[in-house]
Amino acid sequence: MKFIYPAVFKKTENGTYHGYFPDLESCYGDGDTLDEAIESANAAAYDWITLELAEDEPAMPPISDESDLDLKEGEIVRNISVNIRFYEGWDE
C-alpha cells in the first residue's frame, strides 16, 4: 500500500535542513542537506505509518493538499511516498 504525505522543509540558521509533516503528528526529519532531510523524513514517515497501522483501529489522517498549507518564507514542500507491504498469513 502506498501513502503519500506532504512534508515541509526549511533551511535552519546553522545551515542544516529540518522538515515536518503537517498531517503526521510529531513526525519530522533532519539532515545536513535537503536530500538527507528528505531521506530522514521518509524513514520517520515509514515508522509513523507502520506504528499506526499496527493499532487495533488505525486512524490514518487525511492528506493535506499543498495549496492548503500555510507556508512561511523559505519553506518548500516535497511529497514523501511510503510503501508498506502486507504479508497476510506470514508468521515470523
Rank of each mutant, 00 (worst) to 15 (best):
M1D: 09
K2L: 10
K2M: 05
P6W: 02
P6L: 02
V8K: 05
V8C: 06
V8H: 02
F9T: 02
K10E: 14
K10V: 02
T12D: 11
E13G: 01
N14V: 04
T16D: 15
Y17S: 05
H18S: 14
H18K: 04
H18C: 04
Y20D: 07
F21W: 05
D23E: 13
S26R: 06
Y28R: 06
Y28T: 11
Y28A: 09
G29I: 00
G29C: 01
D30L: 06
D32W: 09
D32F: 07
D32K: 10
D35M: 11
A37F: 11
I38L: 11
S40F: 02
S40V: 01
A41D: 01
A43I: 12
A44T: 00
D47H: 10
W48H: 13
T50L: 15
L51R: 13
L51T: 11
E52N: 14
L53H: 07
E55R: 13
D56V: 03
E57P: 00
P62F: 11
P62G: 02
D65F: 15
E66N: 14
E66A: 09
E66R: 14
S67T: 13
D68K: 13
D70E: 14
L71W: 11
K72P: 01
E75I: 01
I76M: 12
R78A: 11
R78P: 01
R78V: 11
N79C: 03
I80A: 02
I80S: 02
I80R: 03
S81C: 08
V82C: 02
N83V: 05
N83G: 04
I84C: 01
F86Q: 09
G89F: 03
